[in-house]
Every structure is written in structure tokens, then in C-alpha cells.
Write a protein that binds this DNA or RNA. Structure first.
Ligand SMILES: [Mn+2]
Ligand SMILES: [Mn+2]
Ligand SMILES: [Mn+2]
Ligand SMILES: [Mn+2]
Lengths: 221, 221
DNA sequence: TCTTGTATTTTGAGTAATCAAAATAGTATG
DNA sequence: CATACTATTTTGATTACTCAAAATACAAGA
């Protein structure tokens, strides 16, 4: 029913809503979809006419319940496909995002259900991103601590990487910062803009604050 | 580079060429792609301009070497995906054709290579159709015997089913006629238009000639 | 040869998605 | 408050693919 283009717009709106809350400015869609502003205005009007989102003139868009349900379905496909590519086909976690970007529009619900079963119903993808369940429920991940904001000198684990770019993921892997890895913040220097961490005993690592903000951490259960 | 539409035209031309040889009439593409004749003329002109096929006015098309190479790549994706869906995700062989019809355009060469490895380089798909290798070489399957044409009273094996429709495949499965299954033709009645076969000892089966012609058989090694 | 019938092509039109560039609205700054 | 800046919208085109319906070419049959 919905074209790949429409699905991409819906997913972009959902991700922005999850990351920032409230209305999604047109500019966010311009950026996410890499098109010119006029294109977004045109598409948004068409999608609003279809009841997928509400367009507030000069402000931005909000997903309707129908639009959000569709967006969650696309996000579920994206993240299950990523999980499949890494776990089953042994692809590198830094290359699967782009592959999933295309496959999320081609995998049917039937295939997805078989894949979910095959993978034993995973709840997070290789980047630590939560996978919505078949009914569209998704774990709330708002206000989680990152290496930029967490407490120092406590044993933690990497929970999620907030940057899907191959470059950053390759770098994170190099540093031993994959989801599940242990970390401890040794010292945070706000003036210098760096965070000093320990990954393994003796393995130290200094990260810039923007990079540190992309590493979500949780208690080292 | 090539759109899904172009890939579908190329694959249809290749399949027709493999089944009938020589030039592919416009009408064959009309049928295969379920579009109106004028649409085919338009698309064919565009594709000829791109060097994917040669258009002989009022006659039909021939694949160029470039077009054929692309078509073989699409066919390889289609059949590897089908194999994957049946072997790994345990889907029914009668439903995978339609799924593969969409996935063949979304699976990248990188993913395909991993899948090929994972499946241990299969050479035929679940319907017995040969899978082109990574260089586009494909087993020649012209002039193989079918239940309509093969010798009687010799132990044989089903090699391939030439009809991908879910209905026919479900029927074939019911009759125990999956690739690899043993069969023997007991008697052929050209006047009555039927073939009487034995699948298992004691299990007899009577097939109409059109159906029999869709079951490719080979020696029961 | 004339007449049909069928396959193919042409013509005219429409939809989805896009861009470039000009117009506009709203916000922030002096 | 006037000005400037920025985000958004509008306008006018373009590309890819599609259909409906009319025109045309070709191969047979009478
Ligand atoms: Mn996508
Ligand atoms: Mn992910
Ligand atoms: Mn296809
Ligand atoms: Mn097949």
C-alpha cells in the first residue's frame, strides 16, 4: 500500500519524535530524506490527505495513529533485518544499516514473522536499538544515560550506539564499545571536552563529548 | 542503477529466451509484466536506448550482452532468495516465488554473497530451477524430458516444476511430486490425454497432459 | 488481390516523486 | 518598529511509468 518513499517519511518522523518529542519540523525531514524543502512540503501534503500525518503549516508534522502504526512496522522490519544480517549472515554491524534501509520495504509481513521466529524474537538490534513487537509496542528509551552524562567510577555496560554511520560504528568497535561491553568512566573534563574511560582492566580510552553522547550505557547487571 | 521495473523486463526477456529461444515478442512481455501493450513499447524503447536490449520493430526484442548479464544477476537473486526462504526460514515452496519477486530487487550483491555462502552455494532452487553462478553461468536445461515426453516403465526422479503458481505447486506437493521424488510412468494414453504414474510402490496417479508437461524428470541415479 | 484479424505502435493524458528558483511568513536583531 | 535572516511554501518543470484508445503494419485467408 504505502510506497517506499512514504515509508521512509513515516520512519523519519517517528525517529525524530522519539529523539526529540513534539512536532517534527519540515527541516528535519529535509535532512533525513536528503531532498529539497519543496519536495517535503509536497509529500507531506499528500500524506496528510491520506491521513498518515497532520500538517501544521509553517510548523511541521505529527504522526497520526495510523501513520505511527505504519512507521513502527517499518522500524520493526528495519531492526529485525539488521539483526538477521549480523546474527545469521555474519555481516558487519557497520554495514547492515544501509542494507536494511532497502530491505525494510521489500520484506513482507509473512517473511518478517518467519525471521522473528528464526531469531527467537529478539528485542534489540545489533546497535542496541529496541525492536518494536508485532503489535507495535516498543521499549521506552527516553532519558537514558550516556558516557557524556552518566555517573563516574561505576561499572557500566554499553547499551546502545546512537550513530548508525559506518565510520562511527567501526570506530566504536575498535574501542571495544559494542552493546554488552563493560565500561567505566574514570574522569570527565567538561572544560577540555573529553571523557576518560576504562574498557578492560588497563585499557584506557579518551573520548570527545560529542562521541561520548552517542554511547548509551546502563548498569552492569 | 536499473529500476525494479527494468529488472523485471530483463528477467522476463531472459526467461522467454530460455524457454523458447530466438526473439522475444512484445506480447510475451505484455503477458509476463501484466501491462498494456503501449507500455511495453515505451519501456522497450527506453531500455534499447540504454543498451539493455535490441528492439526489432514489429518483431520483438533481444537481450544485449549487458542486458543478459543483468538479467542473470536478477535471476540468481530470485532463486537464491527462494532457496533461502525455504531452507532457512522454512517457508512453503508454493509461497516463496511471490516473495522473491520483490526481494530480488532489494537484496544487494553483498547480502547475496553472504547468503550464497550460508546456503553452501546451491545450484538449484526449491522448484528445481537452476541458479546462475556469480559469473552468470547457468546449467543448460533445454530439451529435458517431462512426464509428457519421457520413456515409460523406467525409474525416474522429479527434477523440476515448470509452473510457479501456488495452486499448481500445492497440487504437485499433494501428489508427492517435489524435486528429488521418485516416479515411473506406467502408461501414456495420448488419445485420452492422460499419463498414469507411480510415485511410491502402490501409489498410482493420473495426470492430464498439460500438467504432465510441467514436471521435468531425469534418471533416478 | 482484397479483406480480415491480430500484434504493435502512436498519441494524449495522468500519477508519484523530484528539483530549481522565486515568494512568503515568522522570528530574531538592531 | 524596521530590517534581516531563516524556514517553509509556491510555482513551473522534469523523469519514470502507466493506461485508454486510435492508428498502423503485417500475415493470412478468401
Ligand atoms: Mn528505507
Ligand atoms: Mn540499528
Ligand atoms: Mn520482480
Ligand atoms: Mn523458482
Amino acid at each position: 500500500m504505502a510506497s517506499s518513499t512514504v515509508e521512509n517519511y513515516l520512519k523519519a518522523a517517528l525517529l525524530h519524535e522519539q529523539a526529540h518529542g513534539g512536532i517534527v519540523p519540515m527541516g528535519a525531514l529535509v535532512e533525513a530524506l536528503a531532498v529539497v524543502p519543496g519536495t517535503v512540503t509536497t509529500m507531506v501534503k499528500a500524506m496528510a490527505a491520506q491521513g498518515l500525518l497532520a500538517h501544521e503549516a509553517r510548523q511541521g508534522v505529527r504522526l497520526t495513529p495510523v501513520g505511527r502504526a505504519l512507521a513502527l512496522g517499518v522500524l520493526r522490519k528495519h531492526r529485525l533485518v539488521e539483526t538477521f544480517l549480523v546474527r545469521t549472515l555474519k555481516m558487519d554491524w557497520s554495514e547492515v544499516h544501509d542494507e536494511a534501509e532497502a530491505l525494510e520495504h521489500a520484506v513482507s509481513d509473512r517473511v518478517l514473522a518467519r525471521m522473528d521466529e528464526f531469531l527467537d524474537h529478539p528485542t534489540t538490534d545489533p546497535h542496541g536499538d529496541p525492536i518494536p513487537d508485532a503489535e507495535g509496542r516498543i521499549a521506552d528509551t527516553a532519558r537514558q544515560a550516556t558516557l557524556e552524562t552518566c555517573a563516574a567510577n561505576k561499572p557500566l555496560r554499553v547499551a546502545r550506539i546512537l550513530d548508525q554511520s559506518p565510520d562511527f560504528l567501526a570506530y566504536a568497535q575498535d574501542c571495544g564499545l559494542k552493546p554488552g561491553a563493560r565500561v567505566k568512566v574514570l574522569q570527565r573534563d567538561a572544560a577540555g571536552g573529553v571523557v576518560r574511560c576504562e574498557t578492560k582492566p588497563g585499557q584506557e580510552l579518551t573520548l570527545g563529548l560529542p562521541a561520548a553522547a552517542k554511547i548509551v550505557v546502563g548498569a552492569a547487571a
